[in-house]
């Protein structure tokens, strides 16, 4: 005789718990953090390069790079002037909270005010795995097409900010911005959106200003990273 017992437990609850620990750890260290998700080729690494180039004079920055096998992206971040840690997922299609925890152990967080995590290029899997960063950001790009919110609702639903990269290509594409934004609005009402081009630089300043403002708000709430402030002053 089978006996049915009620469970009602979230799958991936274990990952969510470690993500909470990561979040608490980063908050205690005074490190504001972003998890960048996107499809391959949307421009995550280019956006990170732009961000490093423009912010590294004022903000101490570190990058954690998730990739299936190579260190090309981490090399680009390091070349742009940030300390960079590479996580090779060994074929896994996403980063998870344990991988981030291990990477955090390799960074002297006293020296960091802004941590950018570059997730594996993929619109499906990363959305299911919280890492524990302060904010989740999706980098969309115009050549992908305007139907992506409809095809990958999970990742559009779960982010705190949306970058629309490669707007310099709009004159050459049939990208229906109104259709795209309608899908975004339904899945994620009021999400802050940054249309920009990493190539031309158009719109990038608004993105940078959002990061600066987010760091200020984070510090007001959790305190600043005392060591980093001391070093800079």
């Amino acid at each position: 005789m089978n006996q049915r017992i009620s469970v009602v437990e979230k799958i991936l609850d274990a990952n969510d718990q470690i993500a909470s620990e990561n979040r608490a750890y980063l908050e205690a260290a005074g490190v504001f953090s972003l998890n960048l998700m996107a499809s391959p080729g949307a421009g995550k690494t280019s956006l990170i390069e732009q961000t490093i180039k423009n912010l590294s004079r004022d903000v101490r920055l570190a990058v954690v790079d998730g990739d299936i096998a190579t260190s090309l992206d981490a090399d680009r971040a390091a070349a742009a002037g940030a300390r960079a840690v590479q996580i090779n997922t060994g074929g896994d299609c996403h980063l998870d909270a344990i991988m981030l925890r291990q990477a955090l152990g390799q960074i002297d967080l006293c020296e960091v005010e802004l941590l950018i995590v570059e997730n594996v290029g993929n619109l499906i899997c990363p959305a299911n795995f919280q890492l524990g960063t302060c904010q989740n950001v999706l980098v969309a790009s115009t050549p992908e097409g305007a139907d992506k919110p409809y095809k990958y609702p999970g990742v559009y639903r779960g982010v705190d900010a949306l970058v629309i990269n490669k707007i310099d290509l709009l004159p050459y594409l049939d990208f229906d911005m109104a259709y795209f934004r309608r899908g975004v609005q339904i899945l994620n009402p009021g999400v802050v959106t940054f249309p920009l081009s990493c190539r031309s630089g158009e719109g990038v300043e608004a993105w940078l200003e959002w990061i600066r403002e987010s760091i200020r708000a984070f510090r007001a709430r959790y305190g600043s990273n005392g060591m980093a402030k001391h070093v800079r002053d």
Binding site: M1, V7, K10, R157, Q185, I186
Partner: peptide, 25 residues
């Protein structure tokens, strides 16, 4: 476009069917 998602985000183990020691199967 002002809508609320009321179903479709579920992701959990609801129940398990178990057999106890000594049961026939």
């Amino acid at each position: 476009v002002q809508v609320k998602i009321i179903a479709g985000e579920e992701f959990f183990v609801e129940a398990i069917d178990i057999q106890m020691e000594g049961s026939k199967e």
